[in-house]
Nucleic acid binder design. Structure first.
Length: 576
DNA sequence: TTAGGGTTAG
């Protein structure tokens, strides 16, 4: 009686309170096997993943007394099918904590989830359990393992498991093929493709994508034309391949020629435009799409954030919240980056509390965006705390932290972090160098900065104009004006006014009239509307006793009506 | 078993 009531009510979509009541009734009547039915009914009746569904499931799973493997395994698969991979992995963990033995179904579903979020250690520990529970010869499990190792880029493991399989199905073949394509080994991919006893549309799509992303347009197009049947994924493979090799125009023409476009087609192009800095084209596409899902919003918000359109990123993020679309780790990482660009600590902190309240996983990407936010807004201790909590400190995390210390005048900490990074054998990039040079500059460590600058080549990096500006500034302040001038003259790229300005400032500090005149002339050529350079030159004339010249310049400044811009900070005011 | 979104400067 109660069982049929559960089924009926769930078919009608119960409210959360009704779910609670039904569950209570099940417990009161001691009908524990109905708990399993309750979970399965919820899953079967859920056509899509929504806030409601996830709430139902969590509610039941958290209160279930007799958790059974079948319900849990179905729920893991449900999560995976709806791209809730972290939830799937967490639930697999819960299954184990409850002392239940996993089924082959649970294992392969959990492996799939680990593969999708590139959760290496999770997948490897499930692999160990495969041996423990004797699932080694189950073709679904073996295939899930091949897929997992292919996706995380360990082709040696993937291949050895694949080779050991007595029975292989097309899924196993496609998994190993996809792995070679992803790792860029087209020779191996082609040989697997040629060896396959049968090929389906997925096998063809992998090859098309592989050749397109390597820039081999002719081969990609030839295969695309040759394939016996094509799907929307085939078109998307071409579009995505062209985007990956930087041929955005070609990607667009394929997109236009495509019949039934889907959200994936839009996302591939929006992110392509984002990478090429064409925000307007991305916006145009976004506007054209009628049914936008969470991932399309994420792509557009990321596009705004990556291209310094921070206000637009936050506006769209707010619009997403108003539409009741659930933001995830990726949405929030972009939104926090936008807050950081605006110095909007208030909104950024709100997002952090949102993360804690909604139970969103604070992964390293998200934590790094918060580190950057707090460091830029002066909360360096909070940034430090988050930095130490990272699972893996990568280049971006170190860089954000080094920059943060540099900005906050903690040059010694920045240098310590830089050394730590080098010891961890993480090579710096251009951004890291900017951070460390800024730090050296703060405390006037000329030699160290110069050495760091010279060592750029060691890492295959070309110094940017800003790097030159920092080093010229350091040398000039230290009175090494000739060296600074020599450095500018050796530049293979065009120096901007900041570089010459640094030399001019040094000349003003050390009263070098000859070089000061040269530097000021260059500055005025490059930025004729700025009065600061004239004033600095006037100072040099005055110090050298050339009062007439000093006066002439100061009068010139006054007559032209230059205004000194007041200093300003981007950091938004925070009311306690 | 295929295709899509995230963090660091200026």
């Amino acid at each position: 009686m109660l069982a049929s009531k559960v089924a009926i009510l769930l078919a009608k979509r119960m409210t959360i309170n009704q779910t609670k009541q039904i569950h209570a009734a099940i417990l009161v009547n001691g009908l524990l096997d109905l708990e399993s039915l309750l979970v399965q009914q919820i899953i079967n009746s859920a056509s899509s993943y929504s806030y409601y569904t996830s709430h139902y499931i969590k509610l039941v799973l958290n209160h279930v007394q007799n958790l059974d493997v079948f319900s849990v395994a179905s729920t893991i698969r449900f999560y995976s099918r709806h791209c809730q991979f972290r939830e799937a992995v967490n639930l697999y963990g819960k299954l184990q904590r409850c002392g239940l033995s996993p089924s082959t179904f649970a294992v392969s579903s959990a492996l799939k989830a680990c593969a999708r979020i590139l959760y290496r250690s999770g997948g490897i520990s499930i692999h160990a359990q495969v041996y423990k529970y004797g699932f080694c010869n189950v073709v679904y499990v073996q295939t899930a393992l091949v897929d997992f190792y292919s996706k995380v880029g360990n082709m040696d493991f993937a291949r050895s498991i694949f080779n050991e399989m007595v029975e292989k199905n097309i899924v196993s073949w496609n998994s190993v093929l996809g792995g070679y394509v992803k790792s860029g080994d087209l020779t191996m991919a082609q040989s697997v493709f040629d060896e396959m006893p049968e090929k389906d549309v997925i096998s063809w799509n992998s090859m098309v994508y592989g050749y397109a992303r390597m820039g081999n347009i002719e081969q990609a197009y030839a295969l695309f034309r040759q394939m016996p049947e094509s799907s929307s994924a085939s078109w998307n493979a071409m579009i995505s391949g062209y985007v990956d090799c930087g041929k955005i125009e070609l990607a667009r023409s394929f997109f236009e020629a495509m019949g039934q476009k889907n959200n994936v087609s839009y996302i591939i192009l929006i992110s392509g435009y984002s990478k090429s800095g064409d925000v307007e084209s991305a916006e145009e596409l976004f506007g054209k799409l009628y049914k936008k899902d969470q991932l399309v919003y994420n792509a557009m918000i990321a596009c705004y954030a990556q291209n310094s359109w921070a206000k637009e990123a936050l506006q769209l993020f707010n619009a997403m919240l108003r539409l009741d679309l659930q933001p995830d780790e990726m949405t929030l990482a972009s939104a926090i980056s936008a807050c950081s660009q605006l110095g909007d600590l208030k909104f950024g902190s709100w997002i952090e509390s949102f993360i804690h309240e909604t139970g969103i996983q604070m992964d390293d990407f998200l934590a790094t965006s918060l580190i950057d936010l707090y460091a830029k807004c002066g909360s360096i201790d909070k940034a430090h705390k988050l930095f130490h909590g990272l699972k893996k400190k990568d280049l971006v995390a170190y860089t954000a932290m080094i920059l943060g210390c540099g900005i906050n005048g903690r040059a010694k900490d920045a240098i310590k972090l830089f050394d730590e990074m080098m010891n961890a054998e993480i090579n710096p990039n251009i951004v890291t160098i900017t951070g460390i040079l800024t730090a050296y500059s703060h405390i006037g460590m000329v030699e160290e900065a110069y050495r760091c600058f010279i060592s750029l080549q060691k890492y295959g990096l070309a110094p940017s104009v800003d790097h030159y500006a920092i080093v010229v500034d350091l040398l000039s302040r230290a009175g090494r004006l000739e060296e600074a001038h020599g450095l500018i003259k050796s530049m293979s790229i065009q120096p901007h006014a900041g570089v010459w300005g640094a030399l001019l400032l040094g000349c003003s500090l050390h009263n070098n009239l000859e070089l000061g005149e040269i530097a000021a002339t260059r500055c005025i050529e490059l930025e004729p509307d700025s009065s600061g350079y004239l004033s600095l030159l006037a100072n040099i004339y005055a110090s050298s006793g050339r009062w007439d010249d000093a006066e002439r310049l100061r009068k010139g400044v006054e007559e032209k009506g230059y205004n000194k811009l007041p200093g300003c900070s981007w950091m938004e005011e925070v009311k306690a």
